Amino acid sequence: MAAGGDHGSPDSYRSPLASRYASPEMCFVFSDRYKFRTWRQLWLWLAEAEQTLGLPITDEQIQEMKSNLENIDFKMAAEEEKRLRHDVMAHVHTFGHCCPKAAGIIHLGATSCYVGDNTDLIILRNALDLLLPKLARVISRLADFAKERASLPTLGFTHFQPAQLTTVGKRCCLWIQDLCMDLQNLKRVRDDLRFRGVKGTTGTQASFLQLFEGDDHKVEQLDKMVTEKAGFKRAFIITGQTYTRKVDIEVLSVLASLGASVHKICTDIRLLANLKEMEEPFEKQQIGSSAMPYKRNPMRSERCCSLARHLMTLVMDPLQTASVQWFERTLDDSANRRICLAEAFLTADTILNTLQNISEGLVVYPKVIERRIRQELPFMATENIIMAMVKAGGSRQDCHEKIRVLSQQAASVVKQEGGDNDLIERIQVDAYFSPIHSQLDHLLDPSSFTGRASQQVQRFLEEEVYPLLKPYESVMKVKAELCL
């Protein structure tokens, strides 16, 4: 049975990233139509530049190519590739079939990587351009969430054990800070992308030097003109047959890092959902379990974690691919890159769409948070109580021993009897502590235990987050809708 299948058929496997999760716009960027249309555009740009620099290419040939950029006979191309065992030459023939007058000058002087690699770089750039505003929107939604809850005390956790208090907004800023680093890295790697350009079979530009009869300047002009037509500021000066596969490492490393950030955020949300302090959106008709109707599973956060793990592992592909590119190139890269580049971007696209949807509907339960604080705060307040007693004339050592005994009794009630923490009640009825009984409410005010959390939130948002989001103001209103 021949390899390949009808990918629109229910009898043929289709990647869930495309069929179930990723956005239509990201799927289109990695589609065959987008790819092969870009090949034709690159052939047109090459012909236009070659004509401008004096090669015998007519206006009629150029116009014929322009008129057929979208006229792609995919069936013919597939048949040609089956016959020739070469995808680029299959599309040269297919393009030439609908451009008979231009057929002889299509791909003039070029090698397969002229269309293959340059198209990949265009796709990487455009895919990054799709991700950047999506990530900015996630940051914006979380920034709104953090600002609104900047002063809401909550129990902090280290080692997932109760620690000092923080605020809900401050905790959210930990998430935002990681995503801001990801946004900066995505922008950097996007701006650092260079075009492969017009380089020939081993990167020496020998074929173009021959076409222009040894004119170095025209060869350099050709490279520059096509690079500018493709919208790049610069091209690699040095290439082998391909652009260095280190570029793929750079791009997928940034995406993998984004995956790590999203995994951490969504894990926190899942843990908070278990504590009943916070939940992701839950639709009115949504079913959490087929057997347990009360369940409210954090399905979206779980999906993000599941896909983020996949995204983090994909960076190993370009690392290994770059390491086995012998001399000017081997074909070890080809099949692998067809999979890992598309999957990385479709996965990143999915987790950003999902995280935006989550961040637009996060639900906080202040009463649950308050109750958990009441359970733990008495123990945390013991040092403040000791200091207040010393100020009232008591002995630190005597007070410490009193607190120690009462704390152990209260802990026994919590752990052995399943009761509430009654340390404060014990202190309130103990005559030894009568000098500070009137101060206990103040000493137990949760806001006095959150330090500068709310001020940190305000400063972080104003100095770091809002300036970073400013270039994306025009796209901030787009909502994230999930079908599944």
Rank of each mutant, 00 (worst) to 15 (best):
D223S: 05
A18G: 15
Y114D: 06
T244F: 05
K276V: 02
L108G: 05
A322H: 14
L255F: 13
I62Q: 06
T202N: 08
L211T: 14
E228M: 10
N68F: 08
F208I: 09
L135Y: 05
R188L: 04
L275Y: 10
Q164R: 00
T166G: 08
A163N: 04
F327H: 07
F95H: 07
L84K: 10
P446E: 03
L128C: 13
P24T: 12
V29P: 02
L406D: 05
L124G: 04
T382N: 06
T119V: 13
A110E: 02
I427D: 01
S434W: 09
Q409H: 10
L186N: 06
L484R: 15
V405S: 12
I358S: 10
T58Y: 12
L346E: 08
P293A: 15
K187M: 09
L362M: 12
P293G: 06
S257M: 09
L42W: 02
A291E: 02
P281V: 08
V219C: 06
T111H: 00
V247A: 12
G8Y: 15
L193F: 13
E228P: 01
D11V: 08
E148V: 11
Q455A: 11
Y34K: 06
G169W: 03
C304E: 06
K415G: 04
M225Y: 15
C305Y: 02
L307A: 14
D178I: 01
V465R: 01
T244A: 12
Q241N: 01
G5N: 15
T58F: 12
S359E: 08
R303S: 02
M292N: 08
R234S: 14
Q205E: 07
T313E: 02
A163E: 01
L482D: 08
I265P: 03
R338C: 05
C113R: 02
D215Y: 09
G231T: 02
L128K: 06
F236K: 03
T350G: 09
T382I: 08
L311F: 03
D182E: 04
D332I: 03
R371F: 02
N421S: 10
Q286R: 02
M89E: 01
I62Y: 05
R194V: 04
E220W: 11
H93G: 12
E283M: 15
Q458D: 14
R37D: 12
L469E: 11
M76Y: 12
D182T: 04
D248N: 02
E360W: 08
A392H: 11
R137W: 05
M181V: 09
M89V: 03
G394D: 12
P100Q: 10
V364A: 07
E228K: 15
L461E: 01
T166M: 09
I339M: 10
S448Y: 13
D349N: 07
H86F: 02
V324G: 08
